[in-house]
């Protein structure tokens, strides 16, 4: 399915929650959505027979200095098409609803984004650090992260 057609479908269904289509000509182009509606849009993308994005390939956090983003890469095994979805978040309170009940694979990815960027996924089944030790302070992939001097008495 063409990205523009998909965007129009989403726009028709969700109105203002779907902001714009970016990166046309890129593969895949991505739809910018409002963070609060991520979960409903995700469910629609998975369940609609013409779309059936049954696979969440990747979910990543992005730091744009003045704001954060969460990027979803979706793929449909049935129709063999792909699309990106992106939600921009304010730097002070980076939080949005989880999609781990839509695609269970999202859980590990969300934990990674939480661990390294401090993005909070509301309603997540299990939001813990995944890579760093439980008692680590801060979120190291943030651009303003300051390295600690010591960790458990060992110089960092």
């Amino acid at each position: 399915m063409e990205a523009q057609v998909l965007f129009d479908t989403l726009k028709g269904k969700f109105g203002d929650a779907v902001v714009e289509l970016q990166g046309e000509g890129c593969s895949p182009a991505f739809v910018v959505v409002a963070p609060a509606s991520v979960q409903e849009i995700a469910r629609f993308l998975r369940d609609d027979p013409a779309l059936s994005f049954d696979s969440l390939m990747c979910l990543s956090g992005v730091d744009y200095k003045e704001k954060f983003a969460v990027a979803y890469h979706l793929h449909s095994m049935k129709h063999r098409h792909a699309i990106g979805m992106k939600a921009f978040l304010p730097r002070e309170t980076p939080s949005l609803p989880t999609v781990d009940d839509v695609w269970p694979a999202a859980n590990f990815h969300e934990r990674e984004a939480f661990d390294l960027f401090g993005i909070v996924f509301e309603g997540s089944k299990d939001l813990r650090r995944i890579l760093l030790p439980e008692d680590w302070e801060g979120h190291p992939l943030r651009k303003d992260y300051k390295y600690p001097d010591f960790y458990h008495g060992i110089k960092v």
């Binding site: 760093l132 190291p140 992260y145 390295y147 600690p148 060992i154 110089k155 960092v156």
Partner: peptide, 11 residues
């Protein structure tokens, strides 16, 4: 690198 120990002889 924030996560790698700079030499196992520190341990």
């Amino acid at each position: 690198s924030y996560c790698v120990v700079k030499g196992v002889d520190l341990l």
